[in-house]
Computed example of a mutant assay.
Amino acid sequence: MTLTVRPRRRFRSVPALLVSALAAAVLVTGMPSAALAEPNEVGSSKVAQMRKTLDSAAAQYLEAEGLLEASKTQQRELNQKLAAAENRYARSRASILKYAAEAYKSGRLGVVGVMLNATSPDEFMSRTAALERMAARDEARISEFVAARTEIDQTKGAIDAQVKEQSKQLAEMTKLRKATERALSAVGGYAVNGWVDPYAPTAVAAKRNRDGSWPKESCSENDPTPANGCVTPRTLHALRQAQRWFGHYVSCYRPGDMYEHPKGRACDFSSEPNGFANFSSGPTNKLYGDKLASFFVKNASRLGVMYVIWWCKVWVAGSGWKQYSATGSKCGDSPAGDHTNHVHVSIL
């Protein structure tokens, strides 16, 4: 009888099977990379309430700052107007004093005497016309003198009103700064050193009203980022200015968010080149985020920046850098909430 020898089955070891499976997964999906989904920034109801207060207080602070600047602009214009009025007053006063001195020395003839000394009807009419011109000139001198004095008094009153307005806005800014700090303290927002680089690029300033205040804007411009929504003209300007020097992935509009994103007044700048990663950036891309945060802080007054969040810290207009934690855990445990994978900027 012929014996048939069956071939032995070759069993792969468990480690070998795992290696093969992982290799196949890598071939299909590639190495871990940044995702394009927008980050979920809010980690708790306490943080949500803080962000809501922060949005309101920072916006009102910038509005008050704009009104303060407008008041200062008006005061400068009023000071120029006052100087011009005082010059006219001084000239008209000197003219009247000179005229009075000359009249005193020469002993001016009365109107009747001038008329009686006329030797002919023509001379009589000529003297009458001369007297009328003198009277008109005297009246003009006195009118200019009185008008200049009135303008001086009114302008000084207007300047006093602007000084009061500035005191009011400064008091409002102080109140809003305290409100911001109280909101931040609820989530451990104590003062810290943050990113301030005097050598950061200088942005072109956004448009303001003639008096220095910020114009009201709506979500009227197309969002050029992949978010495919709308942004305000001021947000679009800030985005374009940042993209002159910072080229990583960015997304602005986001529907359904309770803060600035659906209003077109906020953008998230990924610290990773190609999208939002679900991990904290390494040293190279963290440095990118540091520089981007510094850019927005340096140019806050030029671009209308309300606040910047990056790497467990938040910079707020009027308050500076504060500690920020969305989860209350170790910084970086929640990359999106702690903002260790993207820089958030909100624009007035």
Rank of each mutant, 00 (worst) to 15 (best):
V111S: 12
D122G: 06
G110T: 12
P121M: 13
G110A: 13
I159K: 06
D160G: 08
Q162H: 11
F145A: 01
Q154H: 10
R133S: 05
I152G: 01
S143Y: 07
M134G: 02
P121Y: 07
D160C: 07
A136G: 06
T150I: 08
T150Y: 08
K164N: 15
D122P: 04
A130F: 07
F145S: 04
V111C: 09
I152L: 05
A136W: 06
D160V: 09
R149T: 00
E139L: 08
V111N: 09
L116R: 13
V146C: 04
V111W: 15
G113R: 15
I159Y: 03
I142E: 01
T128R: 13
G110E: 14
D122H: 06
A135G: 07
Q166A: 10
D138Y: 06
A135P: 04
D160Y: 10
D153A: 14
T150M: 14
E165C: 10
E151Y: 00
N117V: 02
D138S: 08
Q162S: 06
R137Y: 10
I152N: 03
T128D: 13
R141E: 01
R141K: 10
M115L: 15
V111K: 11
K156D: 12
I142M: 04
A147Q: 00
A135M: 06
E139W: 05
A118V: 01
T155F: 02
M134Q: 14
G113I: 05
D122K: 09
I142R: 08
V146Q: 14
R137L: 12
A147K: 00
A148S: 04
D122S: 11
N117K: 14
R149Q: 10
E151Q: 14
V146R: 12
M125I: 02
D122Y: 05
G113C: 10
N117P: 07
E123G: 07
A161C: 12
K164V: 04
S120H: 07
M134I: 00
L116Q: 08
P121I: 05
F145G: 02
S120F: 05
R141T: 03
Q154A: 05
V163L: 09
A140Q: 15
L131T: 00
E132S: 13
F124D: 00
S143A: 08
L116P: 07
S126Q: 15
G157D: 06
